[in-house]
Structure formats: structure tokens, C-alpha cells
Design a protein around this nucleic acid. Sequence first.
DNA 1: TCTGGGGTCCTAGGACCC
DNA 2: TCTGGGGTCCTAGGACCC
Length: 433
Amino acid sequence: MSSARYRPDTPDKVFAIADCNNFYASCERVFRPELNDKPVVVLSNNDGCVIARSNEAKAIGIKMGAPYFQIERFAKQHGVAVLSSNYALYGDMSRRVMQILAGFAPRIEVYSIDECFFDLTGLKTDLTDYCLKICAVVKQWTGIPISIGIAPTKTLAKLANRLAKSGRFRQCPVLDWHTLDDTDAVLAETALNDLWGIAASWQSQLALLQIADALALKQADPKRLRQHFSVVMERIVHELRGLSCIDLEEIPSPRKQILTSRSFGEKLTGYDDLCAAVTYFATRSAEKCRQHRLAAQALTVFVETSPFDTRQPFYANSATFEFQLPTHDSAQLQRAAQRGLARIYHPGLSYRRAGVLLPELLPDHVAQLSLLSGERSNRSADLMQTLDAINQRYGKSSIRYAREILSQRWRMRQQFKSPSYTTNIRELLTIRI
DNA sequence: TCTGGGGTCCTAGGACCC
DNA sequence: TCTGGGGTCCTAGGACCC
């Protein structure tokens, strides 16, 4: 029984989660203070749809996930600042925030680019005051506003964080679940899909069981829900009751797969254009592999046309190669991707997206133990090390394979991208006096 | 014209083995 | 006439997260 992971007899735990407010929009504002108090949205890769909004943008009704072309006019009318996503900037700002949090709590789990769980169990101080101090320091040192939720389980901490942001109880970026007078009343007013782990499709299935809000879910029979759904739902019920089933994961488990894919800036029909794209994806995947000290046992390459295109039938296909020996050699992965593409490419179609997936990974030291790894593999390792060192020193893609640059037509649209202020010396912020 | 990218976990069902 | 049962492994698909 997998619910053995919760231990009701352990002393009460205290989880906190810090969440950066409107993270991508906030990062942009740090370097563009004139955007404070103005509506700001950040677009997905390829400037496709809205993936982050400032409070002002939310207030005028711009929805998460809205396709940009649908809101373009509206955004112009309302003076919305529109930005392409700038992951170099967000990743670096995230690292800074996490570093500060690590100074305040001995055990932290970086959960996503803008969220971090940490353990406050046993801390003998006022938890709200302590977390307010954390918020103040993060804001002062990075410019990023954060909110913190505190509770006996991760699920409740996520909810507390949400409530802190909503300002429903007090205008304060910190909310400690333990300080609420009537937590059941709060749960009764909480929609199911506001809970961590419950999305729309489960919400409607729960409704069929007469479970319509978070309190009803808390009071439902966990065993019965497990039969209807899975152990995941059973855990949520326990967590709502204050029994911690989901532990802090301080050490991230090794990656199980690596995916590099993109929608293209324009629809592609030519084989060479696609080949340049998948070659680049294979190279990037190989780099990620080496960065994580992993090696791939297989590679899948896939292409697809647009599901929104009414003029041609939707086509999606993939091809997979198994390697005799696990590898993270760029050239080898490229060859596999190119051979796979040749198998699934159909002339005459307009492709909108492609990608390379490494679905089975091994630690690279295991891979190196192979009896067959001899001189050839040493040369490959030396070459890759050299490539990585050059690109590290002189910037991404300073040195690349020729096939990658045969065509640039697949490159994403990034019409509104801000500079990489913190990660590229040539793009430092300039201040004129 | 224009709709993201990168992950994880769980389950069911089939293949296979003894 | 009557055709087992339990275990493991793998995969595809569906759900979730940010």
C-alpha cells in the first residue's frame, strides 16, 4: 500500500512555500521600472500565447493562455507592455531568489522556476514574522516580490500561498494556515481546481460524486476515491486533513527524459529546413545530457503539422532509434535524428513543430563501463568536453555543427524579447544620466 | 497569417515466465 | 468435458504540474 508514505505518528510538520508573484512579468520589471503599475504580459515561445500577466493585466481581463493574435488589438488599446519570454533572464533571477531562500531554511526543495518549498518544522519563532522577513530580503536583494504560505502539508501550504496572494484575509504576503480561525469554512469556499493536483477534468468527475468543494473532498472517504481515481487523489484527501503524505524532496531525482522541441517561426515544408531544426534539437539534447551527466539509450524524433490548420489533414509521426551503447555524443545523436526524420518526412506538408526526445537515460559513468568503450569513446568525450568549454566561455552556439545552420527558417519569433541583462556581458543594462 | 515547452506519475493491459 | 495462477516487466495513454 503506497499510503505507507504518510506517518500520522510523526510530530507535526511545518511546510512553507515561497512563490514569486507573476514571476516573468516581475523579472522584466526589475530592469524596466517604468512598467511598474502598468499591465505587462509575457508570451510563450514563438510569441504564441500569454503565459504570465501582471496584476494589472489580470485586472483588465487578459486570460492565461490567450493566443496573442486574439488579444493583440486589445493589448494595444490598453497600453499593455508585451514581451517575448526571456528564459536566460528568468532562470538567472530564479537562481538568485533560491539562493537567498536557502539562507533562511536548512532544507529547501526548488519546485519550479518560481516556487520553492522549505521546511520550518521545529522553528521556535513567530513563523509569519520570520517569513515576512524573507519576503523583504528577497525583494530588496533581487527586486522580485514573493508570497509565502505555511501549513502542516504541502497541499495546504500551496493553498495558504494562494490565499496570501489573493489578500482575502489580510493584506500580507504571508499566510500561516495554523492562524486561521475556521479552516473548514475556508475549505468550503475553495473551488476544487484551486487545489494543487486537481484540474478541470477531475473537478467534473468529482462533481458526479457530489464532491463540489475542498471541504467535501476533505470529508470524503479516501479509499473510495482511490478506487475512482488513483492513489494521487487519496493522498490529496489526507493532505487536506493535515496528514503529510508528500515529503520535501531536497535532492532532485535524476532526469528520466530530455526533450527539446519548438514550434517554428513559420510553417516549414522543405526537408533541409526541418533537418537543420532537428539537428539543432539533437545538439541541445546532447548538451543537456552532458550537463546532467547522463547518456541516452535511445532517441525519438517527431514532427507534426498544425492541428488548427483546416487546409491539410493533421499529420504527426515519430521515429525511434536505440543505441547499441548509451551516448551523449552530439554527432551521434544528430545522425540518429536525421535518419529518423528521413523516415517520417512527407514532402508537400506544412510542418509547424518538431522535436527530439531522449526517453531512456542512464548515468554516464555507468555507460562508460562498457567493455566496448575504447579509444573511439575517449575521443568523443574529449571532443564534447572541448565543445562545451568553448561554448561556455564564448557563449551558447559559439561553435556548432554546419548542419544546424543550413537553415534558420525554423527559428522562433521573438519579436519583443528583452536583453539578457544578467547573463550576457554585451547586454548589460545601460544607464544614462 | 498567428494557438508553448518541458517535465512527472499512475494505471491498465499485454507479454512473458515459471 | 474440464485448459492455472501469480509475479514481473514494459508500454501507451491519460492525468497532473509549472
